[in-house]
């Protein structure tokens, strides 16, 4: 029996969970040794399922993360044996293994050249193209990575993964409007991804704090607030959403109280859309809602209640800090 964590590992694996998975590797490899029967018998013992290969892949990734290169290489060997060297996914996994075990810059450079060689032969090999981009990024050549990503998105403009990667790269460069464009593309592919909505809201918030004209900043803030609202609407207990909602509403209340005459009546702004600015009362109430929800999440998570323990430690701490900031300013 294969445990479910091996088949569908959570997308964001914490180090401790990762080490737990990789510790299963030697036992798993032991128990699934290939027993080769002579020909007429081997017909009957085709006990292979898709799950086994999925488990091998998960183990390979976990082992590479935890530095168990020996098990990783065994996993990879079996995958290669089964699917052949020419399989795209296996090629990408092999690349990943080579990258992880590379000792110095020169070795990485060699891996990169290997990727380019492969791509020359098979330009449609998406896994390898993505590996090349990831490698470029880890070799700290973001401009090259961006060029490669733009090229990839020109051939495959429905690739949400690539779009969000590009958004992150643009964000790191401070090109907010490009990052927003990319995240909007992600939303066009996955319209109900609340984390992407929240991410877009975060980028909007950043861009509005960086913007110089108060009118634009206000528009950006209210758009960002609405995005956070949408993300909460899609996922009721989304900590990041509430955090952002609280942050933006506090900010908005500040700005609006400082600027009594509302400058945001011009509703045909080309960048931030055409929605009327939200009313002060609803901002106030959203702020209260966010505070209440954040407090609830922090309280229940700290108490270790069942069903409330899935949050990231760092995020909960940040939320508590935000709440504390609030109470401090009231006390003053």
């Amino acid at each position: 029996m294969i445990s479910p964590t091996l088949l569908q590992p959570p997308a964001h694996l914490s180090p401790s969970a990762c080490i737990q998975i990789s510790q299963q590797a030697p036992a798993f490899l032991q128990s699934h040794t290939r027993t080769v029967l002579p020909y007429p018998l081997s017909v009957f013992s085709s006990g292979e399922t898709q799950e086994i290969w999925q488990a091998y892949e998960t183990l390979l990734l976990a082992c590479l993360r935890t530095g168990d290169d020996k098990s990783a290489s065994q996993c990879l060997e079996r995958l290669v044996e089964r699917f052949g060297e020419k399989n795209e996914r296996v090629q990408a996994l092999r690349g990943l293994y080579d990258e992880a075990t590379a000792q110095d810059e020169a070795a990485l450079q060699k891996v990169l050249e290997g990727y380019e060689e492969t791509l020359k032969e098979q330009p449609t090999n998406m896994p390898i193209r993505k590996r090349r981009i990831a490698l470029l990024q880890s070799m700290e050549r973001p401009t090259d990575a961006m060029t490669a990503l733009v090229g990839l998105l020109d051939t495959s403009p429905t690739d949400a993964e690539a779009w969000s990667e590009l958004a992150d790269l643009y964000l790191a460069q401070g090109s907010y409007s490009q990052a927003i464009y990319c995240l909007e593309e992600v939303l066009l592919v996955t319209p109900n991804a609340w984390n992407v909505h929240a991410r877009l809201a975060e980028v909007l918030y950043l861009s509005s704090t960086a913007s110089d004209s108060p009118g634009n900043a206000l528009k950006g803030l209210s758009e960002s607030m609405r995005r956070f609202c949408r993300s909460i609407e899609l996922c009721n207990d989304y900590l990041r959403g509430y955090y952002g909602l609280k942050l933006t509403t506090t900010h908005l209340l500040d700005t609006l109280s400082k600027v009594p005459s509302k400058p945001a009546t011009a509703t045909s702004d080309p960048v931030f859309g055409e929605l009327a600015p939200p009313s002060l009362a609803s901002i106030q109430r959203l702020n209260e809602l966010a505070t209440a929800k954040l407090a609830e999440i922090v309280r229940r998570n700290t108490a270790g209640e069942k069903g409330w323990d899935g949050y990231e430690m760092a995020e909960v701490i940040a939320a508590r800090e935000l709440l504390d900031r609030d109470t401090l300013s009231i006390q003053r």
């Binding site: 020109d154 051939t155 495959s156 403009p157 939303l187 066009l188 960048v271 931030f272 929605l275």
Partner: peptide, 22 residues
Amino acid sequence: REQRHLMRARNMIINHAQISKA
């Protein structure tokens, strides 16, 4: 490339509500 651009246009029609009019 041709197929995916077509797909993108179709996605745009289906999910247009996610992005602002501009």
